[in-house]
Amino acid sequence: MANSLDDVVTAALGVLDEYGLEFCSMRRVAGALGVQPSALYHHVENKQTLLSLMAARLVDGVEIDADVAASMGRFRAAMLAVRDGAEVVATAAAFGLTDSPIEAALAERVGRDVARTLMIYVVGHTQATQLHRQAAAVGAIALDPDLDASFARGLAIICRA
C-alpha cells in the first residue's frame, strides 16, 4: 500500500518525538514507513519541505482568540506535546519555510510588532523549556519548577506593553 503525504508527516513527527530533531533523518522516517528513503521524495521535495509540514502540523488547530495569553498557552502546549516541537517551529520560521498562520492571526488582534514579539518569546521560551526538561530527564540538571510560571510572567509583561 502506498503512503500518503499525511503518512510521511505523521511518521516524521513520530521519529521526531522518539529521537529528537538531531536524529530525525529522511532515512529514519523512511524506515518508520518501511520504504526506501527515495520513496519520500514522491511526497516532499527535501527535508526542509518536510520540516515546514511538520511545523504546520504541530500547531494546526491552535486557536488564536481574544484571550491572547490563553492563545499563547495553547501554542506553547502544542509545541511541548512533541519532543523538539519548538525547535521544529523555530527552524521553519527562521528559514522562511512556511508562513505562520499563528503569527498572522495574532497580528490581526495585537498588531504586527507585538505578534512578532510574542512569537519570538513563546517559541524561544518553549525551546528552552524543552531543552531543560530533556536535560533534567537524563539527570544532567535538576528540573526547574519555575518554568511554567516564568513563561506566564514573561507573557504578562509582553501583553501589558
Results as ranks from 00 to 15, higher is better:
M1E: 11
M1F: 09
N3W: 03
N3C: 02
D6Y: 02
V9C: 05
T10S: 06
A11F: 07
A11S: 12
A11E: 04
L13S: 03
G14K: 04
V15R: 05
V15H: 05
L16W: 10
D17L: 02
E18M: 02
E18S: 12
Y19F: 15
Y19S: 15
L21N: 08
E22I: 11
C24T: 15
M26Y: 09
R27I: 14
R27N: 14
V29K: 06
V29G: 12
A30V: 13
G31I: 15
G31N: 15
G31Y: 07
A32Y: 14
L33D: 10
V35T: 13
Q36L: 11
P37K: 00
P37W: 11
S38P: 04
S38N: 12
H42K: 13
H43I: 04
H43T: 04
V44H: 10
V44I: 15
N46P: 05
N46T: 10
K47S: 14
K47T: 12
K47A: 15
K47D: 13
Q48T: 10
T49N: 06
T49F: 08
L50A: 10
L51T: 14
L53V: 04
L53M: 13
M54W: 06
R57D: 02
G61T: 01
I64G: 03
A66S: 15
D67H: 13
D67W: 13
D67R: 14
V68A: 00
M72K: 10
R74D: 09
F75K: 00
F75N: 07
R76M: 09
A77F: 00
A77P: 00
A78V: 03
L80F: 01
A81I: 00
A81E: 01
V82S: 06
R83C: 00
R83F: 01
R83H: 09
R83P: 00
D84K: 07
D84E: 06
D84W: 01
G85I: 07
E87C: 04
V89L: 04
V89D: 06
A90E: 09
A93W: 06
A93N: 06
A93I: 05
L97R: 09
T98N: 02
D99P: 00
S100D: 02
I102V: 11
E103H: 03
A104L: 02
A105R: 10
A105F: 05
A105E: 12
A105G: 06
A107N: 10
E108F: 02
R109A: 14
R109E: 08
G111D: 14
V114I: 14
A115G: 09
A115E: 04
T117Y: 11
L118D: 09
L118E: 01
M119G: 06
I120H: 08
Y121G: 08
Y121T: 07
V122M: 02
V122H: 06
V123W: 03
G124W: 10
G124T: 09
H125L: 05
H125P: 01
Q127F: 06
Q130H: 03
Q130A: 04
L131A: 10
L131G: 00
H132W: 02
H132V: 01
H132L: 01
Q134A: 13
A135T: 02
A135P: 00
A136K: 02
A137E: 11
G139K: 03
A142Y: 01
L143W: 01
L143I: 03
D144W: 05
D146C: 03
D146K: 06
D146I: 01
L147M: 08
D148N: 12
S150F: 10
S150R: 15
F151Y: 13
F151D: 07
R153W: 09
R153G: 05
A156D: 13
A156V: 04
A156T: 12
A156L: 07
